[in-house]
Design a protein around this nucleic acid. Structure first.
Length: 529
DNA sequence: TTAGGGTTAG
C-alpha cells in the first residue's frame, strides 16, 4: 500500500509499441577512429616534451597530463613520469603528490601511498581533503575499513576539515562489508546528507533485502527537498527488481521520466537484465530499442545481460545476432561475454561448442578467469568428461586462477560419483592449503551423501594422512549421523592418526568407543566385520 | 590536474 502513489501507469505496454528489432547501422554508435593507445602515446610524448623544455613549464601543465593518464587508469605510467620529473629536479606540488597517492592506492600499494603522505608533511605542505579522502579510499578498497575510520577520527580530532566527498567513501565502504547499521549511524551524524549518500544507503538496504527501509530513506530525501538523480533512480529500479517488485521498479522509471531525469546506460541495462532473468526477452528487446532511439549506446555489460537472457530461453541462434550487433557497434566482448556464452552453450547441451569457444579466447586476447574455468569444468563433469575437467583444473592452477568452493564442489561431486576416490583425496589435500578450506569442506559435507563405508574410509584416511584431523573427525561424525556406522577399518585409521599426532587422550577415547561398539554388536549377535 | 554513489557470468 505504501507505494501505491508512486506506482504510475506501467511503462511496459508503451515499450511494447516499439519495433521488434533495432537499427544496428546507426553511425552514431560506430566505434571511433581514435584508439585508446594513440591517446596514451600522445599524452606520454607531450609529457616528455614538457620535460625537455629549457625553462621548466608550470607544474599544472604536467598535472593536466598526469590527470588524463590517471583517468585512463594508467597508474604505473603516471608514477614513472612523476619519478622522471623528480629526477630532473622538478618539485611536484600538492596536487601532483595527491595524484601519486591516488596511483599507489589504485595499485594497492598503501605503504608507498603513505610514504608520499609523509613526504607531503615533511616538505611543509598542508594536506587537503583530497589527500585524506584518497588515502581513506585506498584503505577501504584494500578492506581496511577500520583503519580508514581511525584515520578519519584522528584528523577530525585535530580539527581537520573533511568535505562532502569523505562520507560517501566511508559510508560506502561500511555498506559493502555488510556493516549497514554502522553505515546508517555514520550517515546520521552528517547534517546535510547529499543525494550520493542517500543513494548509497538505499542501495545497501535494497541489496540486503530491506525494501521498506530503503523506501523510507527515499521518501525522507524527497521530503527534505534533496532530489534523487539518475543514480538514485537506477539504484531503486535495480533494488526493487532484486526483491521481486518489478511493478514498483517500473513506477520509479515512470517517475524519473516525469521528473525529466534521463535514464542512462546503467538504467536501461538494469531493466534489460531484470526482464531477461524473468525470460521476458521480447520486452527486454523493446527496452533496448527505446534505449537506441534515445541515443544511449549499449555497452558490453548490456550486451552480456541480453545474451545471458537468450541462453536462458534456449535461443542459441539469436546469440550470434547479438554478438555481431555488438561487434558492429564497436563494443568489444570481454571475459564475461565468453563465460556467458560458454555457460549458455553448456546449458543447451552443446559442450563441444563451449570448448571451442574457450579455446578461441586467447587469440582474442581475453584470458579465462576462475569463473570461466569453473563453468567449463562443471559442464565437463556433468557430461562425464572427468579427465578433461581434471586437466582444466590443473591448467587453471598453473595460470594462477584460484579454484574456489564452486570449482571444488563440481569436481569432488563428479569424482565421488564416478569412483575416482584417489583424485577426490588429491583435491582434499589441495583444499587443506587454502584459506577458505573450512568453507569448501562444509560445502563438501553438504554434497556428499549416500556414500558407502569404504568411500568414507578412503576419504577419512586421505584427510588424516594430510594432517587434516579436525576435518577427518567432522566427516566421521557426518558419516555416523547419516546412519553409516564405522567399521574396524574406520576406527583403526582414526586411532592411528590420533596417536601419531600426539592426541593420546582422544585416541584412547576412540579405542574405548570401538570396544564398546564391539561389545554392543556382539550382544546383538552381529558379527563385527 | 587530483576525490564520492548505480549494471552483467559459474
Amino acid at each position: 500500500m505504501w507505494l501505491s502513489k508512486s506506482v504510475r501507469v506501467s511503462l511496459l505496454p508503451s515499450i511494447a509499441k516499439f519495433p521488434p528489432f533495432l537499427p544496428m547501422h546507426n553511425s552514431l554508435f560506430c566505434s571511433h577512429s581514435h584508439s585508446q593507445t594513440s591517446l596514451y602515446d600522445e599524452a606520454v610524448s607531450q609529457f616528455n616534451n614538457l620535460l625537455r623544455e629549457r625553462h621548466v613549464p608550470p607544474i599544472f601543465e604536467f598535472g593536466k597530463i598526469l590527470g588524463f593518464l590517471v583517468r585512463m587508469k594508467q597508474y604505473p605510467t603516471a608514477i614513472s613520469l612523476i619519478k622522471q620529473m623528480e629526477l630532473k629536479g622538478i618539485h611536484n606540488d600538492l596536487a601532483n603528490l595527491n595524484l601519486l597517492i591516488n596511483c599507489f592506492c589504485h595499485l594497492h600499494k598503501l605503504a608507498l601511498a603513505f610514504s608520499v603522505f609523509a613526504k607531503i608533511l615533511k616538505q611543509g605542505y598542508h594536506p587537503n581533503a583530497i589527500t585524506l579522502n584518497t588515502l581513506m579510499r585506498g584503505l577501504c578498497d584494500k578492506g581496511e575499513v577500520k583503519e580508514a575510520l581511525n584515520l578519519h577520527d584522528k584528523v577530525v580530532a585535530i580539527g581537520f576539515r573533511l568535505d562532502e566527498f569523505t562520507y560517501p567513501i566511508l559510508i560506502n565502504a561500511l555498506s559493502k562489508i555488510g556493516e549497514i547499521e554502522a553505515a546508517i549511524k555514520l550517515f546520521r551524524t552528517i547534517q546535510d546528507p547529499s543525494t550520493v549518500m542517500y543513494s548509497i544507503i538505499i542501495d545497501c538496504l535494497l541489496k540486503e533485502k530491506h525494501p521498506q527501509e530503503a523506501y523510507d530513506f527515499y521518501f525522507e530525501m524527497v521530503i527534505k527537498g534533496i532530489s534523487p538523480d539518475v543514480v538514485t533512480y537506477s539504484t531503486l529500479i535495480y533494488g526493487f527488481c532484486l526483491v521481486g517488485q518489478v511493478e514498483v521498479a517500473v513506477g520509479f522509471l515512470n517517475e524519473m521520466l516525469s521528473n525529466n531525469i534521463t535514464p542512462d546506460v546503467y538504467t536501461y541495462t538494469i531493466l534489460i537484465d531484470a526482464l531477461c532473468k524473468e525470460k521476458k526477452l521480447g520486452e527486454a528487446k523493446n527496452v533496448l530499442s527505446v534505449m537506441l532511439k534515445a541515443y544511449v549506446k549499449p555497452n558490453v555489460v548490456c550486451f552480456n545481460a541480453l545474451m545471458d537472457g537468450y541462453y536462458l530461453v534456449n535461443k542459441v541462434k539469436n546469440i550470434k545476432q547479438v554478438f555481431s550487433a555488438m561487434t558492429h557497434m564497436g563494443v568489444s566482448p570481454n571475459v564475461r561475454t565468453y563465460t556467458i556464452m560458454i555457460n549458455g552453450l553448456i546449458r543447451n547441451e552443446r559442450v563441444d561448442e563451449a570448448i571451442n569457444l574457450f579455446q578461441e579466447m586467447p587469440s582474442r586476447n581475453i584470458l579465462p578467469n576462475s569463473v570461466t574455468y569453473s563453468t567449463l569444468i562443471d559442464g565437463l563433469c556433468k557430461t562425464g568428461r572427468i579427465s578433461h575437467a581434471w586437466d582444466l583444473f590443473h591448467e587453471m592452477h598453473d595460470r594462477n586462477q584460484q579454484a574456489d568452493v564452486i570449482t571444488y564442489s563440481s569436481l569432488i561431486d563428479a569424482l565421488c560419483k564416478n569412483h575416482h576416490l584417489d583424485k577426490a583425496i588429491e583435491l582434499l589435500r589441495k583444499m587443506g592449503r587454502l584459506n577458505n578450506a573450512q568453507e569448501i569442506f562444509q560445502d563438501l559435507l553438504n554434497k556428499v551423501h549416500n556414500l558407502n563405508i569404504s568411500t568414507y574410509n578412503a576419504m577419512i584416511n586421505g584427510l588424516c594422512r594430510e594432517g587434516l584431523l579436525d576435518e577427518a573427525l567432522t566427516l566421521w561424525s557426518k558419516m555416523e549421523d547419516c546412519g553409516c556406522l564405522s567399521n574396524a577399518i574406520t576406527f583403526e585409521i582414526i586411532i592411528f592418526a590420533l596417536f601419531k599426532m600426539g592426541e593420546t587422550e582422544k585416541a584412547e577415547k576412540f579405542l574405548h568407543k570401538m570396544i564398546a561398539r564391539l561389545v554392543e554388536m556382539m550382544k546383538g549377535d552381529t558379527l563385527f566385520q
